[in-house]
Amino acid sequence: MIRVEHIHKSFGGVHAINDTSLEIATGSITGLVGANGAGKTTLFNVIAGHYAPDSGRVLLEGEDITGLPPHALFHKGILRTFQIAHEFSTLTVLDNLMVVPKHSGEGIFNAILQPPMVRAREREIKERAEDVLDFLQISHVADELAGNLSGGQKKLLELGRTMMAEPKIVFLDEVGAGVNRTLLRTIGDAILRLNQERGYTFCMIEHDMEFIARLCETVIVMAEGSFLAQGTAEEIQRNEAVIESYLGRGGKRKRH
């Protein structure tokens, strides 16, 4: 379980997050919604270690992880993806996945001498990477440079990188943005399977209510930097305060 307690974060005079507290249950898929500027991405950045909060705490299973740098959080099983997919553009797709797991071949002597133990681990990681590519149905681009992929494929690759890390909890920042319907379905399927088969916890920022209703048991709504409401997708869509601040009348997604 991740618990966020009384987080404040401001940039200059702007309160991006104002006394927000919330909980994400282990094994759940939680949606985080809210109008643009509601502080969703800032909250992600605070949890994932990009910014230290001005005040407040982030707890992972009761352990205080506030302000730890991203690579330390990585080793605790916390990963995030970005609204605009990030990739190692000059590495192949397969290498993009293979750099993620911890590997004894990183020592200089192991790298030069390549003892059998290291080579066995290398093979094992390669097999896992190939499994991940199969799972995401992008095996055909394994040897392509990641920079040459389409936007949607980059999103899948990003999901693949989180799979290689075998995380506890993954923060997805608008995984569906700029992705066509078919691909969105593939991504949604992958998230559901990862949640059910491997027990990953997901927390996702999304605007597409249909996508959220399909995946998320719990939806948290933020408005103007603080927590507004929490419930199932249905409850949220009926909530007066949420309709007022975010969804608009008729329960349809508000156009920005």
Binding site: P69, P70, H71, D95, V99, R161, A165
Partner: peptide
């Protein structure tokens, strides 16, 4: 490979545990 990854995208390399 880790060196090339780090050189390509430092932030992502840190997020990938390098």
């Amino acid at each position: 490979t880790a060196m090339r990854a780090y050189s390509d995208n430092e932030n992502l390399a840190l997020l990938s545990g390098i």
